[in-house]
Design a protein around this nucleic acid. Structure first.
Length: 866
RNA sequence: GCCCGGAUGGCGAAACGGCAGACGCACAGGACUUAAAAUCCUGGGCUCCGGAAGGAGCGUGCGGGUUCGAAUCCCGCUCCGGGCACCA
């Protein structure tokens, strides 16, 4: 008779062998919620730590498997820092304005507010399911009028500011000095505001029915949309005023080198000079920008961009038809065609000549589309010997090439086959007043700039590639720009007490197709009787770009419910600190795709607020980390079409949240791109099951192997090694190796018949930031009645780590020949002695002459022989 | 073209200039089981010699260098990923 044979599923004795995550995880999530375990504490006597995720755009497809990667890393840090006694701010919110939702609404007719609410609910459920320790009482949503009221308030601040380049800061527009000769003071002010309207060539996307920021163009092109240049009257934000500070202050932050480099490249600082060339027989002169003023003697012609405003004035009659044709052709080309298709240099002669102020030579003025209208002055001096583009153009049109720089050593072939663009020694550069000959490039630049400035024909100049931020979008689902345009052509920004300017209700979300947003079709938006001025007008029909809301959300988290200001200064000072402590968000984790866009805009926005004293630090994010992409199991980027998408819901259902959290961290270095592995997560599950069995009897009670005995020396060492390694690894975000160390602990400890209570108790705390549900359950099993969230994180005792003996490698001619156990305290001299008296070594040394012995205590002995 | 990263077993990866491959996956052998699953134990970079214990050599993309000693530092390449790109 075998009375008790039954299927595993039916036998309770089998169930506890596997960790019952489906019971434990919801239990502790409910507990945390009910007890407000993760409500943020603000205790001025305690150190603080602000750890932030880039808040997500709540898309319709729910959480992607990549989201929990960064979120788990920050959650581990947040939980760890709480246990270290810090007050931790770890919030979450929604960057919910955006085009995908609006496009969804266009096709379904469902209001974007409704769609957003549904998406947020899904995201929130999924985040809760993963057990992240967010303080949900601080949840924010950029589409909430109580939030975007302050986004509008900040736009108002930008609008009401000008940039004082002398003081290097933004100041109120009322303080702008108006020169005496200015007729229209209001127009002058408008021209200096940090938010201004301008007719600019914008990136228009017909399919989207909106314009895009320069920074956004590539992304949409990659998705197959066409983006073309079109002049439109748009809102611009003068981010260029901050170019130098955005560049210089990168020194203040601890960010990945590559991200800093990308920002530097985007800002694109060039130092050089502006030089003015008089046009012969004309009042006009052409000013060029060059980074190589030292090559002025080699400037054999000028080139204007086809858009240059002097073209009509200087073109001679016999050239005018050819010039007109060329300019028209250039206008027809899109930016893309101009940059990619026209590798062959083309151009046209204007008939005009200019004086080279250094040589006195008459040099021809050309037009070519390889000169860009929006960089520098839209005109260049061409030095074909020392600029590859000029060289190609000169070769194509038979223009002269004059060598004025030679290599430091060696000579240049003549005629040149390519431009010599490197620094070198100036030559052929002498006139009656000046000689650069023999000077290295750097000195030659200084000398000629001094001469140009003295002669008042040029000056030292700094240029940036960064352009002003195109700030309006022809969309409904965005923050309204709080401006009223009046019938008389004037406008005003809304006052603080008129904010928020809320989006009107509409039922149709398609753009009008005329370059206006849907807002232009809303009667109450377009017919406004302004109570403050009594004038008639309409609200601005454009809305802000999606980036606006994310420029300051990390500030709102510090004080999310404040209706009197965007955040209380004292609370900002508490959570951001000050520059003297390297202030800002202490740890910011998010994808590298925001390296230029969001991170540049947010830094700009923050600096403007800093200029007014609204924020206490120069920089918003002290330390930044990019989590790497998780690829599909096939090593390719996850996508629906490839069918390699992993859904977090499925993983949590099958393995539990703790397993998903641990596995994503164990996959590899946080910053690395790495493929998903469905087998790999089984290994993590095995580890968690092993931990569970280490603490529990099959009936689910505390394991009878856990007993109140003092730990052995080895057990104590193992525990303390683990504590030390895990602490160091969390602090450096090397979470994969922290988990490896915990696995070593579990492998060793689970083998032991008796496990000291004290050791097992400490290990639960070490595990807690990684697998919080399991840890809480084990903590309770160990007899505790409260959450471990604020238990002090264990510290290690260096004394306990010390080994009595250590293995020393003995090498002969750098090859390992033997290993010895010696006391850790053994000196170099003692090591030599031990090594030489070892039988293995003696055998190897037979008949050889010792030349030298290198002994490194605690490591090795290397015997060098003949 | 320019600027950043990166390259280590069958796979994901470890490694203050000091025993390359921790930890995990996959695999192989064994224990338990009627069997399977689960669990536990054992094994392994490659090549060669040896019946075995063991021994010899070669190994971190390629070629040099520095060093007693290099995956690690330096120089020159190759390939892969990312960014920028007619920016004067």
């Amino acid at each position: 008779m075998r009375p008790h044979v039954s299927t595993p599923a039916a036998s309770p004795a089998f169930v506890p062998m596997s960790y019952p995550f489906d019971r434990i995880e919801p239990k502790w999530q409910r507990y945390w919620e009910k007890h407000g375990t993760f409500r943020t504490m603000e205790d001025p006597t305690k150190p603080k730590f602000y750890v932030l995720d880039m808040f997500p755009y709540p898309s319709g497809s729910g959480l992607h498997i990549g989201h929990p990667e960064g979120y788990t890393a920050t959650d581990i840090v947040a939980r760890y820092m709480r246990m270290r006694g810090y007050c931790v701010l770890h919030p979450m919110g929604w960057d919910a304005f955006g085009l995908p939702t609006e496009r969804y609404s266009m096709t379904t007719g469902i209001h974007p507010r409704v769609a957003t609410a549904e998406n947020v609910a899904t995201f929130k459920r999924q985040l809760a399911m993963l057990g992240f320790s967010y303080d949900w009482s601080r949840e924010i949503n950029t589409t909430d009028p109580r939030y975007y009221r302050w986004t509008q308030w900040m736009f108002r601040l930008i609008y009401n500011s000008w940039y004082d380049h002398e003081q290097q800061r933004a100041r109120p527009i009322e303080e702008l000095p108006i020169p005496a000769d200015v007729q229209d003071a209001e127009a002058y002010r408008d021209a200096h505001r940090l938010a201004y309207m301008a007719l600019v060539p914008v990136n228009w996307c017909e399919e989207l029915g909106t314009v895009l920021a320069n920074e956004e163009v590539d992304e949409w092109r990659q998705k197959g949309y066409t983006v073309e240049r079109r002049p439109m009257r748009q809102w611009m934000v003068r981010i260029t005023a901050y170019a130098e500070r955005l560049l210089a202050d990168l020194e203040l932050v601890e960010w990945p080198a590559s991200t800093k480099e990308m920002q530097r490249n985007w800002i694109g600082k060039s130092e050089g000079a502006e030089i003015t060339f008089p046009i012969i027989g004309s009042e006009a002169s052409v000013t060029v920008f060059t980074t190589r003023p030292d090559t002025l003697f080699g400037a054999t012609y000028l080139v204007l961009a086809p858009e240059h405003r002097l073209i009509e004035q200087i073109t001679t009659p016999n050239c005018s038809s050819a010039v007109a044709a060329y300019v028209a052709e250039a206008q027809r080309k899109t930016d893309l065609e101009r940059t990619e298709l026209s590798r062959e240099k083309t151009g046209v002669f204007t008939g005009a000549y200019a004086f080279n102020p250094a040589t006195g030579a008459e040099i021809p003025v050309w037009i070519a589309d390889y000169v860009l209208p929006h960089y520098g002055t839209g005109a260049i001096m061409a030095v074909p010997a020392h600029d590859q583009r000029d060289f190609e153009f000169a070769t194509a049109y038979g223009l002269p090439v004059e060598i004025v720089v030679r290599p430091r050593d060696g000579t240049l072939p003549e005629p040149l086959t390519e431009a010599f663009v490197a620094d070198g020694i100036a030559c052929n550069s002498t006139n009656a007043e000046l000689s650069l000959d023999g000077l290295p490039t750097a000195e030659a630049k200084e000398r000629i700039i001094a001469w140009l400035e003295q002669r008042r024909i040029g000056r030292r100049t700094v240029r940036y590639k960064l352009r002003d931020w195109l700030f309006s979008r022809q969309r409904y689902w965005g923050e309204p720009i709080p401006i009223i345009h009046f019938e008389d052509g004037t406008r005003r920004v809304l006052d603080e007490d008129e904010l928020p300017l809320e989006l009107p209700e509409v039922s149709e979300f398609k753009p009008t197709g005329t370059g206006d947003s849907v807002l232009a079709t809303v009667p109450e938006w377009m017919n406004v009787l302004d109570p403050k001025t009594g004038k008639r007008g309409h609200y601005e029909t454009n809305t802000m770009p999606q980036w606006a809301g994310s420029c300051w959300y990390y500030l709102r988290f510090c004080d999310p419910h404040n209706d009197a200001c965007f955040a209380d200064p004292d609370r900002l000072r508490y959570w951001l600190g000050t520059d003297s402590q390297r202030g800002g968000v202490d740890l910011y984790v998010g994808g590298a795709e925001h390296a230029v866009l969001h991170l540049l805009y947010a830094r700009f926005w923050h600096k403007l607020l800093y200029d007014y004293g609204y924020v206490p630090t120069k920089e918003p994010f002290a330390k930044l980390f990019h989590q790497g992409l998780i690829l599909g199991e096939d090593g390719r980027k996850m996508s629906k079409s490839l069918g390699n998408v992993i859904n977090p819901d499925d993983i949590v259902r099958d393995y539990g949240a703790d397993a998903l959290r641990l596995f994503e961290m164990f996959l590899g270095p946080l910053e690395a791109t790495k493929p998903w592995s469905s087998k790999g997560i089984e290994g993590i599950k095995r580890f968690l099951d092993r931990v569970w069995r280490m603490y529990t009897n099959p009936d689910g009670t505390l394991s009878s192997a856990i007993v109140n005995i003092p730990p052995t020396r080895e057990q104590a060492r193992l525990l303390h090694q683990t504590i030390k390694k895990v602490r160091h690894d969390i602090e450096s975000l090397s979470l994969n190796t922290a988990i490896a160390q915990m696995m070593i602990f579990a492998n060793e400890m689970s083998r032991m018949a008796q496990r000291p209570y004290q050791v097992m108790e400490q290990f639960v705390l070490v595990l807690a930031p990684f697998a919080p549900h399991l840890a809480e359950e084990l903590w309770q099993l160990l007899g505790h009645t409260e959450s471990l969230a604020y238990e002090p994180f264990p510290d290690w005792d260096e004394e306990l780590l010390r080994e009595e003996e250590v293995e020393i490698v003995v090498q002969i001619n750098s090859k390992v020949r033997s290993k010895l156990m010696v006391p850790v305290t053994a000196s170099a001299e003692e090591l030599r002695h031990h090594a030489l008296s070892s039988p293995d070594i003696e055998r190897h040394l037979q008949g050889k002459t010792i030349k030298n012995i290198i002994a490194v205590p605690g490591k090795l002995v290397n015997i060098l022989v003949e």
